[in-house]
């Protein structure tokens, strides 16, 4: 995992004005272009931050960039997390693996406007301790007053004193009022589904659950057709959806 910071020339640059949950298309010279979530602080206009996991040819090339190298960037694209609608509510951020990346801008926003929200919790599940992202920041967030942070691992070593198991197992361990909570979930699709179902079980309405979906994308503007899920173009109608608007589609395999 590598975080790339791209210098932006201030707030006049449309690229530096993004809403939490949006993504950019990043181009590695001659190799290709892929969608990458914006992972930085939405209030910071001098740099655009992305966190990239090296899994394919383009992400590997992006991860190898050095200070001063060139990268192509188009964006920002897509829908965003409901940070304004959540004002006055308890907020649950639930991340699985690299699903924490598109939620980090929400964390920055919540920290900056803490008084606007009720109780706030981050529930974060990762495979192993080594897979945990943003570890120094995670420690900072953990020590922040009025900020509940719980981390769970699938596989833990002797040195891990925190929770072990699935991320839904953390729900009883944080305080929030299910009827007055906005939940934002990002992670693998199976994790999103099981987490949403767990939230419904404890009384969070489907209209208060938001999820971020991922599909193959080549254009980000609805032309290439690849990111379709039912009638949705995830690049422009998504990636963030209110759960009740897509839950029936997620139940169908290979859609």
């Amino acid at each position: 995992m590598v975080s790339l910071e791209i210098a932006a020339d201030g707030s006049d640059n449309p690229l530096s004005r993004f809403r939490p949950g949006q993504f950019n298309m990043l181009y590695a010279f001659g190799i290709g272009e892929i969608p990458i979530s914006i992972s930085g602080d939405p209030a910071s206009t001098d740099r655009i931050t992305h966190t990239v996991r090296s899994v394919g040819p383009v992400s590997a090339a992006l991860a190898k960039l050095k200070r001063g190298d060139h990268v192509g960037i188009r964006g920002p694209f897509g829908s965003s997390w409901p940070v304004d609608e959540a004002a006055g509510c308890d907020v649950l951020l639930i991340a699985g693996g690299i699903g924490l990346v598109p939620l980090r801008p929400v964390l920055y926003h919540l920290l900056k406007h803490r008084e606007t929200y009720g109780r706030v919790a981050l529930l974060y599940g990762a495979r192993t301790r080594d897979d945990l992202l943003y570890r120094p920041e995670l420690d900072t967030w953990r020590r922040t007053p009025n900020f509940q942070v719980r981390v769970t691992l699938d596989r833990a070593g002797r040195d891990w004193v925190g929770d072990v198991g699935y991320v839904t197992g953390l729900l009883p361990k944080v305080r929030f009022d299910p009827v007055d909570t906005i939940a934002m979930i990002c992670g693998p699709e199976v994790m999103i589904r099981s987490t949403a179902l767990a939230l419904l079980d404890i009384g969070v309405a489907a209209t208060q659950i938001f999820i971020s979906l991922e599909r193959n994308m080549k254009c980000a503007v609805g032309f290439c057709g690849r990111c379709q899920l039912g009638s949705h173009f995830i690049c422009k109608d998504g990636p963030v959806y209110r759960y009740d608007r897509v839950h029936d589609l997620l139940a169908i395999r290979e859609l």
């Binding site: 181009y27 010279f29 001659g30 190799i31 290709g32 272009e33 080549k218 254009c219 032309f223 290439c224 057709g225 690849r226």
Partner: peptide
Amino acid sequence: CTTVEDTTDLTGDHAERWRRWD
């Protein structure tokens, strides 16, 4: 529907992006 393909020539300094029916 389309795909987008990025290529370089042999010098590695000239790249192109092509759109192809998919």
